[in-house]
Amino acid sequence: MFDHTLDLCRSLPAVITEQKWDNELRFYVGEKLFCMISLEPPHSVSFKCSQHQFHQLISRPGIVPAPHLARYHWVQLKQEDALPATELENFLQNAYEIIVSTLPPYEQEAIHKMKAHA
């Protein structure tokens, strides 16, 4: 599942990655962070979500407010299997879309063009 999560995040248009502190891979779109994955087991996954989703998610076992980012509605899955694969995929896609929607219009337009050609 870990490889699938990495592949999904990397496959989204205009995503760049950065490795931090040797054990965390960060995913950005338009220089804004939308997901972080620890590279060492257990692979925790942190991502941006809506305020509504945030409160729903942190009520589930194995999901906590993300350290240092919870005030921005970020959650952390203590292990990757805290959510079924398809649900995690939907939340990661949503995290990406939330961040894209905050970008300047010209960046959003460029990303939408990339999606159309994919």
Score class of each variant (00 low, 15 high):
Phe2Pro: 00
Phe2Leu: 11
Asp3Thr: 11
Thr5Tyr: 08
Thr5Met: 06
Leu6Cys: 12
Leu6Ser: 03
Leu6Phe: 03
Asp7His: 13
Asp7Gln: 15
Asp7Glu: 15
Cys9Gly: 02
Arg10Phe: 05
Leu12Thr: 05
Leu12Asn: 01
Val15Arg: 00
Val15Gly: 00
Val15Cys: 02
Thr17Phe: 09
Glu18Leu: 11
Trp21Ile: 07
Leu25Ala: 04
Arg26Met: 06
Arg26Ser: 05
Phe27Lys: 03
Tyr28Arg: 11
Gly30Tyr: 05
Glu31Thr: 12
Lys32Leu: 07
Leu33Val: 08
Phe34Lys: 02
Met36Gly: 03
Met36Phe: 01
Ile37Leu: 11
Ser38Val: 02
His43Asn: 10
His43Ser: 04
Ser44Glu: 12
Val45Gly: 02
Val45Ala: 02
Val45Lys: 00
Lys48Cys: 04
Lys48His: 10
Lys48Arg: 14
Ser50Cys: 04
Gln51Asn: 09
His52Met: 10
Gln56Gly: 12
Ile58Arg: 07
Ser59Cys: 03
Arg60Ser: 10
Pro61Gln: 14
Pro61Ala: 14
Gly62Leu: 11
Ile63Thr: 07
Val64Asp: 08
Val64Thr: 13
Pro65Trp: 12
Pro65Lys: 04
Pro65Ala: 12
Pro67Glu: 11
Pro67Cys: 00
Leu69Gly: 00
Leu69Lys: 09
Tyr72Glu: 11
Trp74Arg: 01
Val75His: 03
Gln76Glu: 15
Gln76Lys: 13
Lys78Ile: 14
Lys78His: 01
Asp81Ala: 13
Ala82Gly: 05
Glu87Thr: 14
Leu88Pro: 09
Glu89Asp: 11
Glu89Ile: 05
Phe91Leu: 13
Leu92Arg: 08
Asn94Cys: 02
Asn94His: 14
Asn94Arg: 10
Ala95Ser: 15
Ala95Asp: 08
Ala95Cys: 08
Tyr96Met: 09
Glu97Tyr: 01
Glu97Gly: 07
Glu97His: 09
Ile98Glu: 08
Ile98Lys: 08
Val100Phe: 00
Val100Ser: 00
Ser101Tyr: 02
Thr102Ala: 10
Thr102Met: 11
Leu103Lys: 03
Pro104Tyr: 10
Pro105Gln: 13
Tyr106Ile: 02
Glu107Pro: 03
His112Tyr: 13
Met114Gly: 01
Met114His: 07
Lys115Pro: 04
Ala116Lys: 14
His117Thr: 14
Ala118Cys: 08
Ala118Pro: 00
Ala118Phe: 11
